[in-house]
Design a protein around this nucleic acid. Structure first.
Length: 95
DNA sequence: TATCTGACGATAG
DNA sequence: CCTATCGCCAGAT
């Protein structure tokens, strides 16, 4: 079992970096894949604390984009080939 | 050790 | 669809 501390940020960062281009994930998914289910909040915090990560590929479970950066976020997602409508991400078994 | 914070998640109104 | 509240977790002070 993973020891919390550096393992947490390292695991989460690795998971985020592992997101393929054109694909997206949610904070909860990343937390669970990293081995810390329920730590969606901590993931969001880490993602905002540690720069250099593809934060634009990470959205909320409701398809919500990063607040105050929805325009920037949507622009980056569209650059990856993701469809964004009214500040929300589509392509998820939907539409 | 205690308390507050935050790019979350789900439910309630 | 919106805001409000509770529960969750790790980090910072």
């Amino acid at each position: 079992m993973p020891e919390r501390g550096e393992e947490f940020n390292d695991a989460v960062i690795a998971t985020i970096e592992a997101i393929p281009c054109g694909e997206i994930s949610t904070y909860g998914e990343i937390a669970q894949e990293s081995g810390y289910p329920g730590a969606a909040r901590a993931v969001g915090n880490l993602l905002r604390t540690v720069p250099g990560l593809p934060w634009w590929r990470v959205i909320t479970s409701t398809g919500r984009l990063v607040p105050d950066k929805e325009v920037e976020h949507a622009r980056l997602l569209r650059a990856e080939g993701i469809s964004v409508m009214r500040g929300k991400v589509t392509m998820r078994g939907r539409v």
